[in-house]
């Protein structure tokens, strides 16, 4: 996929975070006496994010985005595959070093912040756990950095608004100065006026701190706004990756096209997006081991379900499809 280095004036930027062929399979029992079945939650996912850029990760519930991100931050061990950050093998490092490389921000700050601890404590907690000095001063500085008034240092999470709580969660994630920030639906629980504030903050922090980010969301408009590149996942696999504007303007994979087409724009006059009817729900157990999207795909032929789809690479874009010419026609 990468061009030969000799062909370029400068060497391509090394990825700051590199997920290589991550796999995670859960054994799921359906019903009390059912036989356990294998659920391939993440099935050979590879992602690279260059330093200082943001990769958006989109896909519907159950596509494996959150499982993949748990593995990326080291909260979950993959069955196989590796994660390297800044050239370090994440799983070979002790936790104390891992936390200085990558930190998560979750969807619901109310659940992420202990309600009986004060904001200053919560923001400074990673420093305390991992041997920092000057904790209170640094916590104040970080609160200031994310736009949290330092008078809230002694407040409890319950006294903050939703937006302020998410700022506190971001401050806590950044206090160890990690290289990579993983944001899993960071604004989904927020109102739109507050969402704008948090998105602006993330964009500003990325620029000022040279942060590398993975931004997971089901809201495509938000992902387009904050991301340099976007990867689309379907049932554990990446189906397309492209620069954000290209992905939203000319999605190539049938599933990307379906997702982009189903997004409602806040402008009256557009008809409801047409959806093929009677399609089966995306049941991971029924998905074929070939192209997993084949049962829902309008362009699929029986053979699509038999073999994994080949990679189609174009300048700056890859997607995985058996019948690219039928899709574009």
């Amino acid at each position: 996929m990468t061009a030969p280095q000799t062909a370029q004036m400068t060497a391509p930027r090394q990825p700051m975070i590199h997920l290589r062929d991550l796999r995670k399979t859960y054994s799921v029992r359906q019903g009390m006496f059912g036989k356990p079945k294998e659920l391939h939650a993440v099935d050979g996912l590879s992602l690279e994010v260059p330093e200082g850029t943001t990769l958006g990760l989109v896909g519907e519930s159950g596509c494996g985005k959150s499982t993949a991100m748990s593995m990326a931050v080291g909260l979950l061990r993959p069955d196989s595959g590796s994660v390297s950050i800044g050239g370090h093998d994440l799983y070979a490092l002790p936790v104390a070093e891992r936390v200085r490389l990558i930190q998560p921000v979750f969807q619901n700050p109310r659940a992420a912040l202990n309600p009986v601890r004060r904001i200053g404590d919560l923001v400074g907690q990673p420093l305390r756990l991992h041997g920092g000095r000057d904790i209170a001063r640094k916590a104040r500085e970080m609160m200031d950095r994310v736009g949290l008034p330092t008078r809230l240092f002694d407040a409890y999470p319950g006294e903050l608004s939703g937006g302020q709580r998410q700022r506190a969660a971001i401050a806590r994630a950044l206090i160890l100065e990690p290289k990579v920030l993983v944001c899993d639906e960071p604004t989904s629980a927020l109102d739109v006026s507050v969402q704008a504030q948090v998105l602006n903050l993330l964009l500003e922090l990325k620029r000022d701190m040279q942060l590398t980010m993975i931004f997971v969301s089901h809201n495509l408009a938000v992902v387009e706004h904050v991301s340099d590149r976007v990867a689309v996942m379907y049932l554990g696999r990446k189906v397309e990756e492209a620069p954000a504007p290209a992905l939203f303007k000319t999605p190539r994979h049938p599933y990307s096209r379906m997702l982009v087409g189903a997004t409602l724009v806040p402008e009256p006059g557009h008809p409801l997006p047409a959806q093929p009817k009677g399609q089966p729900p995306a049941d991971p157990f029924l998905a074929p081991m070939g192209c997993r999207f084949a049962p829902r795909c309008a362009f699929a032929q029986p053979s699509c379900a038999e073999r994994p789809a080949p990679a189609i690479t174009e300048p700056a874009r890859s997607f995985w499809c058996h019948r690219p010419e039928a899709v574009t026609a």
Binding site: Q195, A196, A221, V222, E224, S227, P245, P266, E267
Partner: peptide, 10 residues
Amino acid sequence: AIPVPGRTRP
């Protein structure tokens, strides 16, 4: 306040 593809500049 909401990003709209094609209207807001990413």
